[in-house]
């Protein structure tokens, strides 16, 4: 009866302690980086270094706990509508079967159709405005691995092995902007590699 209470207390103290340490470290980190940007006019964006893998304590903490912010896309692109109209993934994401990454099309590519199609819709007007300003759309990354994980993912062999896009990216016919529907943990990768008798050597992915 007594022991669990003590345990909870111990946990609680540990949690408070860790929180305090983290908050202090973060405040200190931000204070220091603010100071350095005051002293050096050259301080460019994202130039701070906490470790070789993280720009700040904040980034390190977030990565340790696997926290990733939900990307907010500049345009409410809808995968659902495009796919329902008979387009294929590879119409826009060219090169997915050729190399490590698929291409995210540039605004010019979008405008080849939207010069004519649905050009009165507010989101398409936003699209045209980007093009007119000579800017590309600043799409935010949805998936991807932390650099410190040293994962080298290559799309092409997965496409060649016949893995459907939706296995890793969820069913895009139901999504508007891409969401992180599937959690790309190591367990997720290994499960599939085991099922398909693909290599599960560390260096297959981590190098």
């Amino acid at each position: 009866m007594f022991r669990p209470v003590l345990r909870v207390n111990r946990y609680f103290r540990a949690v408070i302690g860790i929180c305090l340490i983290l908050v202090t470290a973060i405040i200190l980190d931000r204070a220091l980086s603010a100071q350095s940007s005051e002293t050096s006019s050259q301080a460019s964006v994202g130039s701070g270094i906490f470790t070789t893998a993280h720009t700040s304590v904040y980034a390190a903490v977030r990565e340790f706990f696997g926290i990733r912010s939900t990307p907010v896309q500049p345009i409410a692109y809808t995968h659902k509508v495009h796919l329902a109209n008979g387009m294929q993934c590879t119409d826009c994401h060219v090169g997915v079967d050729q190399g490590p990454d698929a291409r995210i099309p540039s605004v010019n590519f979008c405008m080849t159709c939207h010069q004519v199609i649905a050009k009165d819709k507010p989101e398409i007007k936003k699209l045209a405005a980007y093009r007119d300003r000579g800017e590309d759309i600043p799409w935010q990354r949805v998936y991807g691995f932390e650099p410190s994980a040293h994962v080298k993912f290559n799309h092409a062999p997965h496409i060649r092995a016949g893995v459907d896009c939706k296995v890793c990216h969820g069913d895009m016919t139901t999504q508007t902007v891409a969401e992180r529907k599937v959690d790309h943990t190591m367990g997720f990768c290994i499960n599939c590699h085991k099922q398909k008798a693909a290599s599960i050597d560390c260096v297959t992915c981590h190098y």
Partner: peptide, 13 residues
């Protein structure tokens, strides 16, 4: 700002 790319390359190749 991201400028509009002048060439369409496949990333990673």
């Amino acid at each position: 700002i991201r400028f509009i790319p002048e060439e369409d390359l496949i990333p990673g190749i």
